[in-house]
């Protein structure tokens, strides 16, 4: 360190330092970093086990310096359920995309939430299948164009985009539900607070904690990273409002 300089920002030690494969502007890297900051601040790196199923973040284990399991598409909630039940004093999180959590894995998601499994869902909802090349997701917005909805999502044919926070907050044994984003520094700070709260509630054994990230996908949305932030603000947040849906000790929204 040069004399007269002070470190005010650095990579958390719980990230491996491997260069990430995520596209420019994608929120995955931001969420990875904040998640590992939380792990470090809570001093639980040696107790944390992450589950990353199929999707862009299937390689999360390259970056997160904690024990990790890669799971089959959609099955992270079942895998995480078993890990937490076998090792109840560990911190367990699943890190899932929208196709994973809200399409192929809906049953596992719903039942883990209904049982109040004491792990943290981190649900990256970018409204598109990023890894497979931009196909329609269960959370693709009405009219949004993707490679499998080239004329825009036709909700008369495929139904409405699923609102997972709104759904899972109905379950009695789900403790904490919040939808966050990282489109501005202020929102990123809120997002990190939410991730930390989720881990704290998990530590207290209060039940399922569910954090949805209203995320972006500049590559899949075929726009610049900057334009993706506008899309979030103009299109995504009006349909997927940010904020707390359920929290211990607070009235349900």
């Amino acid at each position: 360190m040069k004399e007269g300089y002070e470190v005010i920002y650095k990579r958390p030690a719980a990230l491996t330092g491997k260069r990430m494969h995520y596209c420019p502007g994608c929120f995955h890297s931001t969420i990875h970093k904040m998640l590992m900051e939380v792990v470090q601040e809570m001093d639980v790196q040696d107790k944390t086990i992450g589950i990353c199923p199929v999707g862009c973040s299937v390689f999360a284990y390259d970056y997160l310096d904690v024990d990790m399991q890669q799971a089959a598409h959609g099955r992270a909630a079942a895998v995480a359920t078993a890990v937490k039940r076998m090792l109840p004093d560990r911190f367990v999180f699943s890190y899932q995309g929208d196709g994973d959590l809200a399409a192929i894995g809906t049953a596992e998601t719903i039942h883990a939430c209904n049982r109040g499994e004491n792990f943290t869902f981190i649900f990256i909802n970018n409204g598109i299948y990023g890894m497979t090349g931009g196909q329609m997701a269960p959370t693709t917005l009405d009219g949004q164009k993707t490679t499998t909805s080239p004329y825009g999502r036709d909700t008369s044919k495929v139904g409405m985009p699923l609102k997972m926070c709104e759904i899972v907050s109905q379950f009695e044994k789900v403790a904490y539900v919040e939808r966050i984003t990282c489109n501005t520094p202020a929102n990123s700070r809120k997002a990190k607070r939410a991730l930390k709260k989720a881990f704290e509630y998990q530590q207290q054994g209060l039940g399922t904690t569910f954090i949805e990230v209203a995320s972006n996908c500049p590559s899949g949305w075929k726009c610049t990273p900057e334009e993706s932030l506008d899309w979030l603000k103009d299109k995504v947040f009006p349909y997927y409002p940010l904020g707390v849906f359920k929290e211990p000790g607070k009235p349900a929204k």
Binding site: I51, A71, R75, A78, V79, V83, E108
Partner: peptide, 19 residues
């Protein structure tokens, strides 16, 4: 644990065995 399906059950086995 009585799983919600055989699909979930075998993936629970995966998680528990991996743990």
């Amino acid at each position: 644990l009585q799983a919600e399906s055989e699909v979930a059950a075998i993936n629970m086995v995966y998680g528990a065995a991996a743990a």
